[in-house]
Every structure is written in C-alpha cells, then in structure tokens.
Amino acid sequence: MAAREIRSEEITAAVKRLFLEANTSLGDDVRRAVEAALPLETSPLGRHALEMILENDDVAKGCFLPLCQDTGLAIVFAEVGQDVRLVGAPFRDAVEEGVRQAYRDGHFRPSVCHPLTRENTKDNTPAVVHVEIVPGDRVRLAAMAKGGGSENAGSVTMMLPTAGLKGVKDHVVDVVRRAGPNPCPPVTVGVGIGGAVEEAALMAKKALLRPVGSVNPDPSLAALEGELLAEINALGIGPQGFGGRTTCLAVFLAVKPCHIASLPVAVCIQCHAARHREVVL
C-alpha cells in the first residue's frame, strides 16, 4: 500500500489556524460550562467574574483580539499515522513555522525567552512538540496555548506507593487549594497518575485536551473525576478566587502502570480560557 502523503505546508497552515482560533475565542465546551455555572453561582463577585468572562469572549471574537494577553507557550500534540509520508520541510520546522505565522499575524504576545538570560525569542518559538506514532494514515494535530500563570501552579510529585487512592486525591485537591486564585479559576485540572516522572506530566497535560463535560470511558475513573470535582468546588475559591462554588469546570484523569517503588502524580492546571483546538488531516 502506498503511503498517504501530507505536505509540510498543510501542517504549517493547520497549526497556524489552530493557534489563531484557540487564542481568540472560548471553546464551545468552556462557554457552555460557564453559562451553566452562572445561575448556580452564589457569590456576587463570582457571578460578576463569570459574566465578564462571557463578555470578554464576545469582544475577542468580535474584534479578533486574544482572550488573554498571555497568548501562551505553544504546545503541539501530534499523532502521526504510520502509513503517512510527510513530505517537504522537516515536521518540526513545519510546526514552528505555523506557530511563528499565527503569533505574527494574530498580533499575539511573544512570551518565550531563554530560561536564564530571559532574552525573548521574539516569535514565540520554539514550541513544545510531542509526537506519537499511531496506526492509520491520518495526522491529528492538537494545539494548546498554555498561559504561564496556570502552568506555574502545576506540580509533579513522586508520592509514596503506599499513599493509596485517598493520598492521591488529597494531594490533587491540595495542589488546587494552594494555587487558589493564581491560575485564573474556574480552572480545568489534568491529573496523570503512574508511568514515570515525565510520563505522568505528559499524561496530565494531554488530559487537558479533553472537552469539558466529556465522560471518562473508564467508569471508575469517571466516578473519581466527579468526586475530585466536587471536593475542589467545595474549597470556596470561586471564579478568580473571589469566592463561590465555581472553582473548577472539570477534572480529567489519566492512569498508567508504574514501577513497584513509585507513584508519580502530576497535576496540570488550565485557566478558564483553556485555549486548545485540534484537527485531523
């Protein structure tokens, strides 16, 4: 069977479009969740914050302005079918070019710098690119513009293997409690349990691609997600930390076996703007 060809220009165009869209409008899932939370929010300042979030989405769409001035570190998850032949520029270059064009043409803030000198790279590259080889002849691209405020609230912890389910749950809730208003609640929370130190973090981050309102196909994890969501929303942090019951819109869990000596747990927090989009080529 001949491999299906996908040109690098298609990758670049797709990445560009995904970042332009993600940065300038709320996802339908988030918009619906905020609208649903509004009448249930008991805190007047919390309701005020939720109303402003919706109004901001309208203005951003209308004026093609970014939802947030922090247009994020560009993160791309690519699932490349093993029957695909990528032609043209190297894959990573094609992705970087899409990021570069989106941030230039969208008038997005270049938010990437050298970690030590703090010198800005000026075009928001390099992106963080994760590639997975999967069956089939398609390429799935997911683009996430990840803000620094919410990213700084994340954590990777090597827990004691004996900590158990309760230990893990308490830890996740505690990470969100300590973050408080800093990551711009209402947040979504991705949790990676198991694997190894880097895989837990990757699972937690990738879990944030799930739509708010989606149900985990594993019934026991679905139940656990519901319990964590309820515990987090009982903290009282509320929208923007102004108090109330809308602290978290969704918890997404990903679990994988790990070493008998280890229990890696990563918690990745996403702000209410939750900017991500995906496409299948």
Binding site: V59, L65, D70
Partner: peptide
Amino acid sequence: AALGGIAALLSRCVTQNEILAYPDLGP
C-alpha cells in the same frame, strides 16, 4: 485584582499607551 483572562475587554479601557523605559524588554 484585575480579572485574569479578560484582556480583550480590558484593552478597551486603554486610551493612551507609551513606552517609558526598558524598550529592549519587548512585551
């Protein structure tokens, strides 16, 4: 506190914008 993540809305409150110092810091 200004609300985080409503920067399109907040930008409409700005009537003048001028760099005072450290232009090399970019944003």
